[in-house]
Simulated assay, not measured.
Amino acid sequence: MPRLDWLANHMSYSDTLAEWLYRQFSYEFVEQPLADWQREFADGQRNGNWKCLIALADGELLGSAALAKADLAERAELGPWLACVFTTPQARGQGLAERLIDAICAHAKERGITRLYLHTHDRRDYYLKRGWQTLECLQVWGEEQWLMQRNL
C-alpha cells in the first residue's frame, strides 16, 4: 500500500510532480512557462502556499493532493483549497485519490479549518459522491469549472 507523506520531505519529486500537474491541468498554465510553475510549486512547499501530500510506493511517486491558500483568482476571497489532485495512470482505480483527499481534509480540520473549496472541470460527480457541494458553474481559462465546497 502506498504511504503518504509531505512533498516538503521529498523535494526531489517536486519538479516531476509540478510537470505532471502542468500537463494534466494545462489550461490553467497557458500564460505560465513550466519552469516558472516548477519554481512557484517548490517555493509553495516552503511557504505553505501549496502544501502538498504525496503517495509513494517503493520510491515511486504515484499521486498528490494539496492544501492551497489560493487556487482560483476569480474567487480570491475563498480559501483554503483542495488542489493538485492527481494520480498516475497505473495507480488509478485503487482509491488512492480518495485517500489523499481525505488526508488533506483531516489535516485542514486539525488546523481549525472548517471549509475547503475546489474547482473542477470534469470530476464534479466524483466530488459530489464524496460530500462536496456545488456552489456555482463558471467559465475560467475557456473551460467550464465547477466551484465546490466541503464543510469539514
Rank of each mutant, 00 (worst) to 15 (best):
S12H: 15
Y13K: 12
Y13V: 09
S14C: 11
D15L: 11
D15C: 14
D15S: 15
T16W: 06
L17N: 03
L17F: 00
W20I: 02
W20P: 06
W20Y: 12
L21Q: 02
L21K: 05
Y22W: 09
Y22D: 00
R23F: 11
Q24R: 13
Q24Y: 15
F25P: 01
F25N: 09
S26T: 11
Y27S: 15
Y27T: 04
E28M: 14
F29E: 00
F29N: 01
F29W: 14
F29L: 00
Q32E: 03
Q32H: 09
P33H: 01
W37H: 10
W37P: 00
W37R: 04
W37I: 01
W37N: 03
W37D: 01
Q38F: 08
R39S: 09
R39V: 08
E40L: 13
F41Y: 04
D43Q: 15
G44D: 02
G44I: 05
G44R: 07
G44M: 12
Q45E: 06
Q45P: 06
Q45W: 09
R46A: 15
N47Q: 09
N47Y: 02
G48Q: 12
G48H: 08
N49C: 06
N49V: 11
N49L: 13
W50G: 03
K51S: 11
C52F: 01
L53Y: 08
L53A: 07
L53H: 07
I54W: 12
I54Q: 13
A55L: 07
A55S: 12
D58E: 06
D58F: 00
E60Y: 01
E60G: 01
E60Q: 11
L61I: 04
L61E: 01
L62F: 14
G63Q: 03
S64V: 04
S64I: 06
A65Q: 01
A65C: 04
A66M: 05
A66I: 03
L67M: 11
A68S: 06
A68N: 01
A68V: 06
A68R: 01
K69W: 01
A70G: 10
A70N: 07
D71C: 04
L72D: 03
A76P: 07
A76G: 12
G79N: 03
P80C: 07
P80A: 11
W81V: 02
L82N: 02
L82E: 09
L82A: 10
A83Q: 05
C84T: 06
V85P: 00
